[in-house]
Amino acid sequence: MIKVENLKKIYGPDEALNITELTIESSECFGLVGNNGAGKTTFFRLILDLIRASSGRVMINGEDVTKTEEWKRTVCSYLDEHMLLSFLSPVEYFETLRKIYGLGEQDLENHLEKFSPLFNDEILGKKKYIRDLSKGNIKKVGIAAAFLGAPSVILLDEPFENLDPTSQNRLKKIITEEREINGTTFLISSHDLIHVTDICNRIVLLEKGHVLQDLKDKKEVMAEALTDYFDR
């Protein structure tokens, strides 16, 4: 469970985020939407302790993320390509992560097999460094890496961006199955309202750093509420 209490991030005179209280339950698929500058990426970076809050705190399973490292064993993410070791090939990168996580070779093979439809024979064994892949394929590598090691929480920032329609649908299937089979909690930030409403059972709308709507309803009802907001 992730719990936010009086969380603020201020840059000079500008308030980037101000969330009084928010709880994300285990096994939720939590969607985060909003226009540019709404505070989505700031919120994710605060959860991951990549930046420090001006005030307030984020708790993961009862632990303040700024005061312990234990939560990092069960939380993984992919926010952007800067999180990758782009000077490695995808195979080298996954092998490096396998050793860090203490996984067996068969564990990695099984993991990559799960992502084979998403990779579409365009990533593994191509003798390319990650940095030389297309933006969409770089994203696929990052997303597959975020799933490695069976984390209980996965954060994905704009996971559908730069993916073709077939890959978007395959990714949605992977996320849905991971949640249904393993009870994984997902936090997904996206500008793509269709995909977010397809897979998320809860969607929070941010506006200028504040929670404007917290939607927990049928897909069609959430889609209508979001359409009304963004069509203003």
Results as ranks from 00 to 15, higher is better:
G37I: 15
F94C: 01
T41K: 11
I188W: 03
V204K: 01
L7D: 02
I199L: 03
Y129W: 07
D214T: 04
G125R: 04
E220T: 00
D231K: 14
H82A: 15
G62M: 07
R98W: 11
Y93G: 00
I123T: 10
L187M: 14
L226H: 04
E5H: 07
E220V: 00
K3F: 14
E178L: 02
V211D: 07
R45P: 05
E95N: 01
R170I: 13
E95Y: 01
S116N: 08
S55C: 05
V91G: 08
K218F: 02
Y129F: 13
P159A: 13
F230D: 07
G12V: 02
V141T: 15
V153A: 10
I10V: 05
D49H: 15
E158M: 12
N6W: 09
D121E: 14
L108F: 05
R131A: 13
H210A: 13
L193V: 10
S190T: 11
S26L: 04
S134A: 10
C29N: 03
V141Y: 14
E122Y: 06
I181E: 15
E15A: 01
D107M: 00
M83V: 06
Y129D: 12
Y229W: 13
G142P: 05
V196P: 06
P90D: 00
F160E: 10
R52I: 05
A38G: 09
R131Y: 09
A145I: 03
P165F: 08
P159L: 11
G136C: 07
P117E: 02
E92V: 00
F160V: 12
T197I: 02
F119H: 00
V141E: 09
N110M: 01
K208G: 01
K172C: 15
K72Q: 08
I194Y: 15
I51Y: 11
N201T: 13
A150V: 05
G149H: 04
L226A: 02
D164R: 06
T166E: 06
G142S: 06
K139H: 13
G136E: 09
S27L: 10
K9N: 02
H111Q: 12
C200W: 01
K127H: 09
F87E: 12
K3C: 07
S89A: 07
K135E: 11
R131Q: 15
N36F: 10
S26D: 15
R57W: 03
L118I: 08
F230C: 03
H191Y: 13
R98A: 03
E158P: 05
I47H: 10
H191M: 10
L88I: 01
E69W: 04
G34K: 06
G142C: 04
A38W: 07
I175M: 02
E69P: 02
I2F: 11
R73E: 14
N36C: 12
H111V: 00
G34H: 06
G142Y: 09
R170Y: 08
D64V: 12
A225H: 09
G149R: 03
K127F: 05
A16W: 06
I138R: 11
E25Q: 14
P165E: 05
R98M: 11
E220A: 00
L156G: 13
R45A: 12
I123S: 09
S167A: 15
L85A: 09
E109C: 00
E122N: 12
L155N: 09
N18C: 09
I24V: 09
L163A: 12
A53T: 02
I2P: 04
W71E: 08
N6K: 15
K127A: 14
L48E: 08
D164K: 11
V204C: 11
E161H: 12
E180R: 12
G104K: 02
K173L: 10
V65R: 07
